[in-house]
Write a protein that binds this DNA or RNA. Structure first.
Length: 276
DNA sequence: GGCCAGGTTCTAC
DNA sequence: GTAGAACATGGC
């Protein structure tokens, strides 16, 4: 294991953790222990959140740099967001959300894991989603022991999830048929997850929505968190509430069209924070 | 014990 | 195309 350190400007692990885009982060003693796909790392920032430290195997360095979006344009996005917040005045809902969400980011997660995770998420709550995915990994993933002697589980592969009988007893509920069907499609090359990233947004969404169990909202989540489509704007119960209450005359989609997904993430975090 | 959860599908107008 | 019910499960 090695530690890699990156200078960051707008990066807040705690807010990302609380923003409903990850289900396999565990906060232990101030550090996040993260598993994603076949990989695992340990992450923490310094007190001022100016440096992010990633502890991982050297061959996984690039995976985690990509995962955390180390080279993505967040400085630019935040510059623009703060500019708009200033113009709108501090009383506007979005200005308040932007201020509260400073340091939010959208991760680049493996698309397969993202797809399965958000199929599980439908009509479900976050603690239960985490629990189900954890059990799924423990039962159907591989157990890996690191140099340091701690254990983690990889995310199951399509061949592990295509058999619906393997999915019983994990709390997946009625979504089991959606998951086994999706795994079967991937195994049979009926759907190519890797090309969704390069495809036009609408086209990729159309392909995802043709799969049972994936509707408008889940498709947007997969495209946003797993395919780098930052124009995706998943509307769940929380976002719906905000749109109806704060934007009865329409949301300024055009203004944020380059990074709508980041704005959605900021709103989701802020709205849930207000309700705690 | 009833309600709700990062929704989707199916059915009926 | 839109409203309403059904869907598994467990935390609160």
């Amino acid at each position: 294991m090695n530690m890699y350190t990156y200078k960051v400007k707008n990066f807040d692990l705690d807010k990302i953790y609380e923003s409903g885009q990850v289900f396999r982060w565990e906060l232990i003693g101030g550090n996040y222990f993260i598993s994603s796909g076949k990989n695992a790392c340990q992450v923490f920032t310094d007190k001022d959140k100016k440096y992010i430290n990633i502890i991982c195997e050297s061959q996984e360095k690039e995976f985690w740099e990509y995962y955390f979006g180390i080279n993505d344009n967040y400085n630019e996005y935040w510059r623009i967001l703060n500019l708009w917040a200033e113009r709108d005045g501090e009383d506007s809902y979005l200005s308040k959300a932007i201020k509260a969400g400073n340091g939010m980011g959208v991760l680049n997660q493996p698309v397969w894991e993202t797809a399965i995770s958000f199929i599980v998420s439908q009509n479900n709550n976050i603690p239960r989603i985490k629990n189900t995915i954890k059990k799924m990994c423990e039962k159907l993933g591989d157990c890996i022991e690191t140099d340091e002697g701690y254990f983690y589980y990889t995310f199951p592969e399509p061949q592990n999830l295509c058999n619906i009988e393997n999915l019983q007893g994990l709390g997946i509920g009625y979504r089991d048929k959606y998951i086994s069907d999706f795994a079967r499609r991937v195994l049979d090359n009926k759907i190519d997850l890797d090309v969704l990233r390069i495809m036009p947004f609408k086209e990729a969404k159309c392909i995802l929505k043709s799969c049972p169990g994936i509707g408008e909202k889940v498709a947007n989540c997969i495209l946003l968190y797993g395919c780098g489509h930052l124009e995706a704007f998943p509307v769940d119960t929380w976002i719906r509430r905000v749109l109806d209450r704060e934007f009865p005359n329409g949301f300024p989609y055009e203004r944020y069209s380059r990074f709508l997904g980041l704005v959605q993430q900021i709103i989701f975090y802020y709205e849930r924070m207000l309700n705690k």
